[in-house]
Amino acid sequence: MQYVAPIGVGIVYVLLMSLIREPHRRRFNAVMVAGAGAAYLSGGGLGGWEFAFTALVTWVAYRGLDSWTFVGVAWLLHTAWDAVHHLHGNPIIPFADTSSLGCAICDPVIALWCFTGGRTPRELLRRWRGAGERGEDPAWAADAVR
């Protein structure tokens, strides 16, 4: 359950974010990942590296205001930072020892969605079906970036 629940959290996040209309959806997600990038500042246990990471993810999230690809990259950066904290730092939730691991499992789900252009489930399904009807490989149907 420790490995499955974070995937569910990522899916719920995507479904809820899909309710926000574009272009606000992309911008809102850029702000969300910038905030997530600062989550360890108050006690992540990695000293000055916490500030360096926060600066990096903030810059990438800023670029994400206009690009789903940058939002996805920022979520993957946060995934890596979660893994570092799980192995060497303090957990994101101080009283939950595996919370950083859970976050590292959840974040790539969100990143994958961002790399599809942050589309709603309906848009993704429509694009997937349309590619199959045109004889294209449906695996590539969702790779457009807005």
Rank of each mutant, 00 (worst) to 15 (best):
Asp82Cys: 15
Thr54Pro: 04
Arg129Glu: 13
Thr98Cys: 11
Pro121Met: 04
Leu124Met: 12
Pro108Lys: 03
Ser100Phe: 06
Cys114Ala: 15
Arg26His: 09
Ser100Thr: 06
Ala34Val: 00
Arg122Ser: 07
Cys103Asn: 14
Pro23Asn: 06
Trp68Leu: 08
Val31Trp: 15
Ala38Leu: 13
Gly117Cys: 06
Leu125Ala: 15
Asp107Tyr: 05
Leu112Gly: 06
Ala83Asn: 02
Asp137Trp: 10
Cys103Leu: 09
Glu50Pro: 09
Thr54Met: 14
Ala96Phe: 08
Gly47Pro: 12
Ala131Leu: 05
Val33Gln: 14
Ala139Ser: 07
Ala34Leu: 14
Ala104Tyr: 12
Leu112Gln: 02
Ala30Asp: 05
Arg122Pro: 00
Trp128Met: 06
Ala83Ile: 15
His78Ala: 14
Phe70Thr: 00
His85Tyr: 10
Ile93His: 12
Ala30His: 02
Leu87Asp: 07
Val145Asn: 11
Gly118Glu: 01
Leu101Cys: 10
Ala131Arg: 00
Cys103Ser: 13
Gly47Arg: 00
Asn90Tyr: 07
Ala38Lys: 03
Thr120Cys: 10
His24Thr: 06
Trp140Leu: 04
Phe95Trp: 15
Cys106Trp: 02
Arg119Phe: 05
Ala34Ile: 01
Glu50Arg: 02
Trp68Phe: 06
Ile93Lys: 04
Ala30Ser: 08
Thr98Phe: 15
Ala141Gly: 08
Val84Arg: 08
Ala83Leu: 14
His24Ser: 13
Glu133Gly: 00
Val84Ala: 08
Ile110Ala: 11
Ala74Glu: 11
Arg27Thr: 03
Arg126Pro: 03
Ala131Gln: 00
Pro23Ala: 12
Ile20Phe: 11
Ala139Asn: 10
Arg122Val: 14
Cys106Gln: 10
Asp66Cys: 10
Ala38Tyr: 07
Gly118Pro: 02
Val57Met: 06
Cys114Glu: 05
Trp128His: 13
Thr120Glu: 05
Val145Lys: 14
Gly117Thr: 00
Trp140Pro: 00
Pro94Thr: 07
Ile110Thr: 03
Ala38Thr: 15
Thr58Val: 08
Arg127Cys: 07
Phe28Gln: 03
Phe51Tyr: 13
Pro108Asp: 05
His24Asn: 09
Arg21Ser: 09
Phe51Met: 02
Asn29Ser: 12
Ala30Trp: 06
Ile110Lys: 02
Leu46Thr: 02
Leu56Cys: 14
Thr79Leu: 12
Ser100Lys: 05
Cys103Thr: 12
Ser100Met: 11
Pro23Cys: 09
Arg134Asn: 11
Pro138Ile: 04
Asp107Arg: 05
Ser18Gly: 10
Val60Gln: 07
Ala38Met: 12
Trp140Phe: 03
Phe53Thr: 05
Gly135Ala: 01
Gly47Glu: 03
